[in-house]
């Protein structure tokens, strides 16, 4: 589904990603862990197509096609979803309008008829139940005045609405209480199918109790320095990152 080969990326002349290789097959869940500043969000942004980052080497294919050629909105419409680590507020734009535009852009791309207001509201109610989203939030402007946890929930809600093929969750669990964590996990698990995949960026084992990863990667200083099964997350939880750091200095 996603294949990253020897990816180098820099921002403002500073090299952040230094030769990433990653293969993700349909049906898989990959966890990416690693100390702050390792480049996890950078990798997520590069996949989503943020302009700030310059790809200096390597290639990425998504669903068999070159990803780097495509605009961010095209990537999104072809099924790549990023749950942002820090979702932005967009004052003046009602959540409902935003989401309706988003859903219909996705549908247009797939050659489907746009949803009417009624159909859209029905779909929205269904998905709101799934992630326990409150109408007081959907009635507001995009992320405006949302608490940290509410913003994260809103990301998962949007993911549920858009049903992506590949979901990238960038520290969606950070700052969430245990109930909210379960909601996030429900959202991801509801999406899970043999045709979809997820990349879960996290610092905590607790999320991985709910979303069980097939692989755990450790990203450190722009490189994947270790890949193993779900037990690696437990090991990290116990030992922290120090052993990774010392193994990789020099």
């Amino acid at each position: 589904m996603l294949s990253i080969k020897n990816l180098y990326a820099s921002v403002e002349g500073m090299e952040i990603l230094k030769g990433i290789n990653l293969e993700i097959k349909p049906g898989e869940v990959h966890a990416i862990m690693g100390p702050n500043g390792s480049g996890k969000s950078t990798l997520a942004s590069v996949l989503a197509g943020k302009e700030d980052y310059e790809i200096t080497a390597g290639e990425i294919t998504f669903l068999g096609e070159d990803l780097l050629d495509k605009s961010p909105e095209l990537r999104a419409k072809e099924g790549l979803f990023l749950s942002f680590q820090y979702p932005v507020e967009i004052p003046g734009v009602p959540m409902v309008n935003f989401l309706k535009t988003s859903v219909n852009e996705h549908r247009k791309h797939k050659g489907l008829k746009e949803l009417t207001a009624g159909e859209f509201l029905k779909l929205m109610r269904e998905k709101m139940d799934l992630v326990d989203m409150h109408t007081k939030l959907t009635n507001r402007m995009v992320n405006e005045g949302f608490s940290g946890g509410e913003k994260k929930k809103n990301e998962i809600f949007q993911m549920a609405m858009l049903e992506p093929k590949l979901a990238i969750l960038d520290e969606t669990d950070s700052g969430l209480d245990i109930d909210a964590l379960r909601v996030v996990a429900n959202g991801v698990n509801a999406l899970k199918s043999p045709e979809t995949a997820a990349i879960v960026v996290t610092h905590y084992q607790r999320l991985l109790d709910y979303i069980v990863p097939d692989y755990v990667h450790i990203l450190y200083k722009g490189k994947i320095v270790k890949t193993a099964g779900k037990e690696l997350a437990l090991e990290l939880e116990e030992k922290g990152y120090d052993w990774i750091k010392s193994d990789n200095e020099k």
């Binding site: 989503a48 197509g49 943020k50 302009e51 605009s71 961010p72 909105e73 999104a76 419409k77 979803f81 990023l82 942002f84 979702p87 932005v88 967009i90 935003f98 989401l99 535009t101 988003s102 852009e105 996705h106 791309h109 995009v142 949007q158 858009l162």
Partner: peptide, 12 residues
């Protein structure tokens, strides 16, 4: 960032 957020949701 606001524009990119919209882009990421399929909005040009």
């Amino acid at each position: 960032d606001q524009i990119f957020y919209c882009n990421q949701r399929g909005i040009d």
